[in-house]
Amino acid sequence: MPTGVAIRDVREQLFAAAERVLLRDGPSALTSRAVTTEAGCAKGVLHRHFADFDAFLTELVLDRIARIDAQAAALRDAAGTGTVAGNLAGALTDLFGTVAVAIVGLITSRDELRARLRQVLPSGVPVLAEATAMIAAYLTAERGLGRVAPHADVDTLAPTLIGAGHLLFADRKGTPPHDEAVHRVVATVIAGVAP
């Protein structure tokens, strides 16, 4: 890109480029050069907007966590509609069918990124912790509506569902699981607490 030409929405373009690299080539291929090449801009563009590459990655993860917050609100709003298993299966597919699995791989592979995220998010694995909170809040809402048994251990069910969902989608090179497979896993996990 020629010098002096303004790039609109630079952060989002760089984040989208990073996601494409992550999904296509994995966390080990994610470098500042790979991101700027994918975005079609000079390497200096990234460093004009972020102190260093780990600062860029930290902002990328935090931006994607904010998207989970929006998903969480939509899932809570779905309480009382459809089926509990259907809503949960849809939420897991929406969550893990995107770049979330690759982001988790990125977080676990970069020590400096984890250290920076710990300053902002003190507990749990980022993305997975927020996703677990999303599922727990939904199950709590459904329990309040009587669609999940009063004795349901939401604090155990939520991470179980997230772990199972993560495993279903973890093979980023393979074929994503079919909706029926996700629904079957969800229905099995909640069988004792939701009709």
Results as ranks from 00 to 15, higher is better:
D69S: 11
A79Q: 02
G174P: 01
T156C: 12
D25R: 09
H49P: 11
R8L: 15
G174I: 01
I65M: 11
L157H: 00
F56H: 06
I65P: 09
V45F: 00
F15E: 06
I68K: 01
V120L: 12
D155M: 09
T175C: 14
P2S: 15
A73D: 13
A85K: 09
D52I: 02
A158G: 00
F169P: 08
T132I: 01
A187M: 05
G192W: 00
T98P: 11
A194R: 06
L106N: 06
A129W: 05
G44V: 02
R76D: 13
V84L: 08
V182K: 07
I135Y: 05
G105M: 03
A55L: 13
V61M: 10
A79G: 00
I68P: 08
K43M: 14
T81Y: 12
L161Y: 09
I107A: 10
L121C: 00
A100N: 14
T175D: 15
A194S: 05
F96H: 10
T93F: 03
G40D: 04
V189F: 04
A102L: 04
A137K: 02
R76W: 10
A115N: 10
R24I: 11
T31E: 08
T132A: 05
A129V: 07
A66H: 14
L167Q: 14
D179M: 14
G124F: 01
T156Y: 13
A129G: 05
V84P: 07
A158Q: 11
G26Q: 06
E38F: 00
I7D: 01
A78L: 08
I103W: 08
G90E: 06
D111Q: 15
A187K: 02
G40A: 02
G40Y: 00
T83G: 02
R67F: 13
V125C: 07
R118I: 09
L46F: 05
L75S: 09
R11D: 15
S28V: 13
I68N: 01
A55T: 13
V127D: 06
G4K: 02
A102G: 04
A141C: 06
E112D: 12
D153N: 12
A133L: 12
V5Q: 13
L75C: 04
G90Q: 01
R76A: 13
L139G: 10
A149K: 02
D179H: 15
A6H: 10
A137D: 11
R110I: 02
G146N: 03
P176G: 03
A133E: 14
F53K: 04
